[in-house]
């Protein structure tokens, strides 16, 4: 099934590239609609691929890093679009699509293993909600960090407005609620599978650190609503931690033999 991946991925990337181009250079409403339509189709193409893959391998396609990247690309493009429909920010949808395309390209260059086996511990009704909720949270928080990073660099060119930070807040609150749910689903699952809800396994530890960083952002924003720049810095740092939790843990010496490490 992964053999068809280059076809699906290329179609999605082409659609998204066209959408990004239209978003960037068009002024008319009709062209913007066309762009939105193109990006929706790109996301749908990937969704179809994921469903077919799921059926072909007889297990949820959520076990390997490549598989999580695939979900991430779907969610991120979806979130970019949703925020476009909600707030009409073209740049955010362009950034999200670019990031999603980047993740797809990584998958294209990193051919995936086609492994149907799934260890017994992962065969649980918790598997799908745990991973989906997590990747969705990652995508929302990734989008919030895009807002933050843009703001840190754009700010130097002059005027500050409160709009971007409100958008970052909205994305963080949504993302954080999913992050919390993912973490707690994981705890409930762990109790069923391993006898304890929290064992400070390296992935758990890093997931907790990630959660704490977003907690810091939320509290800081609450108490210091006017210090936009520092808040944005926290948000950017939090995303670095999130990436360590997602990919970096695989390479940390402290995490060898962790049950949570995605297979390459």
């Amino acid at each position: 099934m992964w053999l068809n991946f280059p076809v699906f991925a290329s179609v999605a990337i082409l659609l998204w590239m066209a959408a990004t181009g239209l978003f960037l250079f068009s002024a008319s409403k009709i062209l913007n609609r066309l762009a939105a339509g193109l990006s929706v189709s790109g996301t749908l193409v990937l969704l179809v691929f994921v469903i077919m893959l799921w059926q072909a391998i007889d297990r949820p396609p959520m076990r390997t890093l490549g598989e999580t990247r695939l979900w991430y690309a779907i969610f991120l493009s979806g979130i970019g679009l949703a925020s476009y429909f909600r707030w009409k920010y073209k740049w955010l949808v362009c950034y999200s699509l670019t990031l999603a395309m980047m993740f797809l390209s990584v998958n294209l260059n990193h051919p995936e293993t086609y492994d149907k086996t799934l260890m017994p511990a992962l065969q649980s009704p918790w598997f799908v909600p745990h991973v989906i909720v997590y990747i969705f949270a990652y995508a929302l928080l990734g989008a919030s960090s895009l807002v933050a990073i843009r703001n840190i660099f754009v700010k130097s060119s002059g005027k500050t407005t409160s709009e971007p930070i409100h958008m970052a807040d909205n994305l963080v609150y949504l993302g954080f609620s999913f992050l919390t749910l993912g973490l707690l689903f994981g705890a409930l699952w762990a109790k069923e599978a391993w006898g304890h809800y929290w064992t400070w396994d390296p992935k758990e530890t890093w997931a907790f650190i990630t959660w704490m960083f977003y907690l810091i952002y939320i509290h800081y924003r609450f108490r210091n609503p006017l210090a936009h720049n520092k808040a944005m810095m926290i948000l950017a740092a939090a995303f670095v931690i999130l990436l360590i939790c997602w990919f970096g843990v695989n390479y940390l010496p402290s995490a060898q033999n962790s049950i949570h490490v995605y297979t390459e």
Binding site: W200, P202, I209, L215, H219, Y220, S254, Q256
Partner: peptide
């Protein structure tokens, strides 16, 4: 209040970060 909570969260995060790097 937040002014007590934030440093405490930072402190806790610092300890957990140590756990993230040192094999337990």
């Amino acid at each position: 209040g937040v002014k007590a909570a934030l440093p405490a969260i930072f402190g806790f995060t610092f300890l957990v970060l140590l756990m993230g790097f040192v094999k337990q």
